[in-house]
Write a protein that binds this DNA or RNA. Structure first.
Lengths: 230, 230
DNA sequence: ATTTTGAGTGTACGTCCGTTCACTGAGTAC
DNA sequence: GTACTCAGTGAACGGACGTACACTCAAAAT
């Protein structure tokens, strides 16, 4: 019986004991753990983009993709919700890297729209997973994750509003900047969603569309007086 | 054995044979079928709003909510996808009723924005389920349903573009109207999403925001010349 | 009065799910 | 060199899922 148990388990080791793809066993224990954690995060992004979002993701499916037994998941996250929160964090880090990228280089007002859209398109292409995650889980997704995304997006919107407040607009209240920021963020999120499932030449069209929309909005904003109505 | 079978099945009839809530058995057979169909559609809207969207909806859950045995579902729809398509149809019927409601009465350009937003808010409040369904399944949701929603939304956008094309704007191309319509529809869908989970006094703020955004966009549009750039 | 129809019933199946538990064994601290 | 730690294993559970199948029994058709 003892022999039986040993025999039935030993071969499994050759399949599982070194679970990660690519460069397997190298490194210390914490490095190995981090590597598995990354593999889980990546697999979760990949699978939830194909399947029905994060809520439609199963532990077993995820574990199989990573090359690990289902229960091993719990060594890294207490639940799928917590995994989701980590992905929110990561995805918005992507987004903040993007605006940092926009800012650095040139604050010339004339080019800023074109440059913003270019950087947006680049970052969306380079970080599909993160942007798809944000725009998807914003509406579907486990309530906790959904709330986290919405909160981060509101934060981002407020930051944009304070940025916008530096443009010279005599008759504007701070509420007006907030409203304008909401409009712009909404339009850009819509652009991202469309970009994510567009062929390369459609992407060019979408970039042109985004630029024109931003220009329209900015032109409207410059002519706007908050005391016109209401 | 035969007796056993009969005995074990007979009592169930008293629970299920007249399944619908409210006014149960009245009417012809086709009326009764229609009543069950409606109950399924309503329950699907209700449950998918609480749970994880239409993709997170289970046949058994749905059947229990309706007060019917799971397999009875197949008398009305071949699959959940097909049920989803019926809901898309119904939801966009709601939306078209809304724009009909905007049009009738007054085409005064000065009031049209205020009236549009008012009607939007009313219809969203009156048809929560439909509007929530559209904005949710647009991104999550079974691929077939998702595609149907996206297609209908594009259609709606094109209709708005032709409506807009009647405003006097000398330097506009038809592509410009399309782009403007996209911007407006996007902003309104965002408004709907926010309205759906807002308290009554927040709803007033959101209506004011939507009005201002529309005004900003329209002001920008009127000053726009498509030959400015690109 | 009879047959036919079909919405709804109830059982049973195989599959996947999340989570528990005791375990192994290589890397680490002592 | 020994003891400890802990990422990963694998079996087992109870429950929910979709769907098949044969059935019932009033309403509709004849």
């Amino acid at each position: 019986m003892t022999v039986d148990t040993v025999n039935s388990r030993t071969p499994a080791r050759t399949h599982y004991a070194v679970p990660m793809a690519g460069s397997p066993g190298t490194g210390t224990r914490v490095e190995q753990k981090e590597r598995t954690r990354r593999a889980i995060l990546d697999a979760a992004l990949r699978l939830s983009e194909q399947g029905g979002g994060l809520s439609g993701l199963s532990l077993r499916q995820l574990a199989k993709e990573v090359g690990v037994v289902p229960t091993a998941f719990y060594r890294h996250f207490a639940s799928i919700d917590e995994l989701g929160l980590a992905l929110v964090e990561e995805s918005f880090e992507s987004l903040r890297a993007m605006i940092r990228d926009v800012r650095q280089g040139n604050p010339q007002p004339a080019e800023i729209i074109e440059r913003s859209v270019d950087v947006l398109a680049e970052h969306v292409a380079a970080n599909r997973g993160h942007f798809a995650f944000i725009s998807r889980e914003r509406y579907s997704g486990p309530p906790v994750v959904r709330d986290a995304v919405v909160r981060q997006l509101e934060l981002f919107e407020r930051e944009l509003a304070t940025d916008l407040a530096r443009i010279p607009a005599p008759h504007w209240s701070s509420a007006d900047f907030q409203i304008l920021a909401n409009l712009i963020v909404g339009a850009m999120v819509n652009t991202v969603v469309d970009l994510l499932e567009a062929s390369p030449n459609e992407q060019a069209r979408l970039r042109a569309r985004a630029e024109r929309q931003l220009r329209m909005v900015v032109v409207g904003a410059l002519r706007w007086r908050s005391d016109w109505q209401d």
